[in-house]
Every structure is written in C-alpha cells, then in structure tokens.
Amino acid sequence: MAMEDLAFIKGFCRLCDDGFKQGWHERNGGNLTYRMTDDEVAEAKPFFEEPREWVKMGVRGENLAGQYFVSTGSGKYMRNVLEDPYANIGIVEINETGDAFHIVWGLANGARPTSEFESHYMNHCVAAARTDGADRVIYHAHTPGIIEMSFVVPLGDRVFTRILWQMMTECVVVFPTGVGVVPWMVPGGPAIAEASSELMQTYDAIVWAHHGLFAAGPDFDTTFGLAHTVEKAAEIYLAARAANGGSDDFLNKISDKGLRDTCRDFGIKINEAFVD
C-alpha cells in the first residue's frame, strides 16, 4: 500500500486525466484542489514526510484552518498526474490561523502547489461555509467554449447564465443558481481570489473571462460533471450562433416558462433573478 493506492488520490488523478483528455489543459494549464476528510487524513498520515517550511498565502480563511488539501503542482502538467502523482501533486496542511501552508507529501524536487492556490483556498472557505462543509473540490480548467463566449457575450452573470440555460435542458438542473462572471484579471493573486470568492457565495461555477472555468462541488464526479455541462452548453451556443450567421436570435430556444417548469418538476429552486 502506498499513498497512490488510496481512493481519494486515485479519484483526484482520474479527474486530472479526464480534463486533459477533454483538451482543457494545454501545457501546465488548469489546476485542482481537494479538501480531505478526517478519515482520509488518518489514512494518509502514515505516508506523510517531514513537513517543509510554512508559506504565507496572502489571504486568510479561518474556517478551514488546520485542514489538509491535495493540490496539483505549479508548472506541472495534468497529462503527467496519472503516471506520476508523487512528482505532480501533493498534500498541504493549513496552519492554525488559516493564512499559510506547508507541504507534507508529494510535489517532489522542491515543487509547489498551484500558483492559484490562494484563489482555491479562499473559494474552498466560501464553498464550505455555504454548503455546511459539503463542498470539497475546486477545479479550474481552460475550457475553450467558455473562453470563446467571453469574447462575444457581455461579461455579466445574468446574460451568461441565460444563454447557457437555454442551450440544453439539463443545464438549469445542474446549475440552477447560474454562473458568476469575473472580468479578466491577472491570475494567481489575492485580487482574483477575492473576486471569485465573492461570487462563490452564490454560484458553484464561475467564468474567468478569457481564461476558463472555476467550479466547486462535493466530490470529483459532481464537480467534473458541472464543468463538463457548462462547457458543453457553451460549445452548443457557439456552434448554433455560427450556423445562424453569427446571430444568437435563434428560431427556437427554451422559454423562461420551460426553465421554471423543469425546475418545478425536478424539485429545484431556480435563481428568479435570471428569468423573466
């Protein structure tokens, strides 16, 4: 038995590989973090190594102080995670004040967690608080359809959400609160972390304009499924718009009544601010 044999590590690696196979992770693009359960920490501790030095994050989140996270590495390639987890991912512990971490396993040869770990951590703090601790996964992917949409659609939560909801029947079921949109910002710093965490108080999925998608969920399958659904809807919108001569004044689309009726039948509360 090794760390790589534990179920949560296998699930983490599979998501990285699934995202790469979708074409969402060119070079070292994208990242993934997972907040471990107490049982998983106990299971993993026999494989922990001598902790490295504490690293200040530049942000603080006290509600997840002392927690352990699995993270992809800065500069690491998603395509290599499944083949060599120890070199490409690692486990970090958050300090008692929630503003620093140190590495306790993996990220070999002096590697560090993703450069966007600050954004991940702040969004974990918000998502955990919003879901009473249920959300444990934060996933960022360079989804091409969403990136393309951010060039041709006004950068607003309502307009993005309505377009995506109207592309596929299941969209309003998968993300009934909608999607948030962050205008383009320099990645990897406190500013985009704070902007994203504000939106994460409402949404499970956040568009980073000209950059990709940020998604949260309770487990690997749910989170990947959310990202996959949002991205597929974006691709359908772009294809339909191109087929319609560049216009999104489509002959047919799902009506607001249809969106409400779908949520009613599935027992889901729709974001009323986004329907007429």
Score class of each variant (00 low, 15 high):
N252K: 14
P190T: 02
T114P: 10
L226G: 02
V172L: 05
N252Y: 15
K56P: 09
H124S: 00
V181L: 05
W24K: 12
E43S: 15
F101Q: 06
D99P: 06
Y68L: 01
C263P: 09
E83P: 01
R60H: 02
F8M: 01
N80V: 01
K253N: 15
M57L: 11
G23P: 12
I138F: 04
I146H: 05
V55N: 14
M78Q: 06
G106W: 03
E83N: 06
D17Q: 07
T37C: 00
P113W: 09
F224R: 03
R35L: 06
G30H: 07
V275N: 11
V137S: 01
D276H: 15
R27V: 07
T229C: 13
N95E: 12
G98I: 09
F214W: 13
F266M: 09
A129I: 01
V70H: 02
L15I: 12
G23Y: 13
C16D: 08
Y77C: 03
F175P: 03
D219A: 02
P46D: 06
M168F: 09
R60V: 03
D204H: 07
A239C: 09
H211A: 08
A128N: 00
M200Y: 08
I94Q: 06
P85E: 03
T97W: 11
V137A: 00
A242E: 15
T229W: 08
T97S: 10
I206E: 06
E272H: 13
E93F: 04
E235C: 10
I9M: 00
P144Q: 10
T229E: 08
G73P: 04
I236H: 07
W105H: 11
S74P: 10
L226T: 08
S255R: 13
A216L: 03
E50S: 13
L107A: 06
T143N: 07
F224D: 02
T37G: 01
G110K: 09
Q201N: 05
R14G: 00
I147Y: 04
D221C: 01
Q201F: 01
E231K: 06
R60M: 04
I236Y: 10
D256Q: 10
A195S: 14
Y68E: 01
L238G: 10
M168E: 13
L226P: 04
G133C: 01
G30Q: 08
E235P: 07
L6K: 04
E50G: 05
V172W: 12
A243V: 11
V207R: 08
D84W: 04
H211D: 10
T97G: 07
H25T: 15
A227H: 05
L15R: 12
K21P: 05
E148K: 08
S196M: 11
F266Q: 13
H210A: 05
N31C: 12
V104G: 14
E62H: 03
I236V: 14
P144W: 08
W105K: 05
T202K: 14
H120Q: 00
G75W: 05
V186L: 15
C16T: 08
T202V: 11
D261W: 11
V207F: 07
F220H: 00
D261Q: 09
R162A: 08
A215D: 08
N88T: 07
A7G: 01
V186Y: 15
E198G: 07
N28C: 12
Y86A: 08
D39G: 05
A134G: 10
N252C: 14
F175W: 03
F48P: 11
A227E: 14
W208G: 07
M168I: 03
Y77K: 07
